[in-house]
């Protein structure tokens, strides 16, 4: 009866029902927390998982809860403290949370959660306005090296994946990453408008944000942060152009702390099954998300590697004081 450890209210009413039901199916109830407001990327991921879980019959009841705030810092704090030992809860998270927890000096860290699986990943694209004199990654790198102040970057929030990618680009170009002139905008639309209006030298964001502008010929794709050329992107990667930079904005699910190895295994298997369902694959396609499924020990290692790497970058840019 370990599952009743948490919750005076939760316990009495639901535990009896749970114990009865779990014997029949792998999972009958699941609570997915989206540590963001309804509508954002994490919320959409949580609600898509809910849809696929119930439609495929893998899990009968799935409930999505939203705990918005501070790049997920509030959600994870509530998850770690409130859901401890509960094998029927998941939380959606992503690369943004890794950075946010560091820059917000969060007392809760990702080392406390139980890693389950990475589900999607999107590579970053670097673009310039169509009338820019900069033609490819080499020229952009040369400009950054010559004077990092004169190359202005438009992207998302400070310390986020866009900012980190810009810093890594400067580093790979041989310039001082603390000297980049990175200008954070609130919301994708504002940054894109600044790039289209030629207010900044270059823009950096997920490829999806720029796709239609690139196809319409209003933006020029300089390179992707992928390991090689991507099949669905008409343009080279930065690595192919000799710039050693690889970074992905991924989303994953994690479970609360304090689970037994068996409970972790059951939960991982449930999510493994989800990733293979027809319903989930259809949803990925509709949303334009790239499948980047990885679970078990491989994901656990990936998660801790990403944390170490991000901390190093953020410290070298001066966004985190070591």
């Amino acid at each position: 009866m370990t599952r009743i450890t948490k919750g005076l209210w939760r316990g009495a009413l639901t535990a009896a029902a749970l114990t009865l039901a779990t014997s029949a199916m792998a999972q009958s109830d699941l609570k997915i927390m989206a540590p963001a407001a309804p509508g954002g990327g994490w919320d959409q991921t949580a609600r898509s998982m809910q849809q696929a879980f119930t439609q495929s019959g893998l899990v009968k009841n799935v409930q999505v809860t939203n705990v918005p705030g501070a790049g997920g810092s509030i959600g994870i704090a509530q998850f770690v403290n409130g859901a401890k030992g509960d094998p029927n809860q998941l939380m959606v998270m992503g690369y943004v949370m890794v950075g946010a927890l560091l820059t917000n000096n969060s007392p809760v860290t990702l080392a406390q959660v139980t890693p389950i699986a990475r589900i999607t990943a999107e590579y970053e694209a670097i673009v310039v306005p169509a009338n820019s004199p900069i033609k490819d990654a080499k020229e952009l790198a040369a400009a950054v090296k010559a004077d990092p102040a004169k190359v202005t970057w438009a992207g998302g929030s400070a310390g986020g994946v866009d900012h980190i990618a810009a810093a890594l680009f400067a580093k790979a170009a041989g310039a001082d990453p603390t000297k980049i002139n990175y200008i954070p905008f609130s919301g994708g639309g504002e940054a894109l408008a600044a790039i289209l209006g030629g207010k900044v030298t270059a823009g950096i964001s997920g490829y999806g944000e720029f796709e239609s502008q690139i196809k319409a010929g209003k933006l020029r794709l300089i390179g992707m942060t992928s390991p090689g050329k991507l099949p669905n992107v008409d343009g080279p990667s930065l690595k192919d152009q000799g710039i050693d930079l690889e970074i992905a904005n991924w989303r994953a699910v994690v479970a609360p702390p304090g689970l037994s190895p068996e409970q972790t295994k059951t939960l991982t298997e449930t999510v493994d099954k989800l990733a293979k369902t027809k319903e989930w694959q259809e949803l990925l396609k509709a949303k334009g998300w790239d499948d980047a499924y990885m679970s078990g020990p491989a994901f656990a290692k990936y998660l801790s590697d990403e944390q170490a790497k991000t901390k190093e970058v953020l410290t070298s840019v001066g966004l985190v004081k070591s």
Binding site: A149, I180, N181
Partner: peptide, 8 residues
């Protein structure tokens, strides 16, 4: 108590 300053 703010630690970071803007570069530009």
């Amino acid at each position: 108590r703010l630690q970071l300053n803007a570069v530009y």
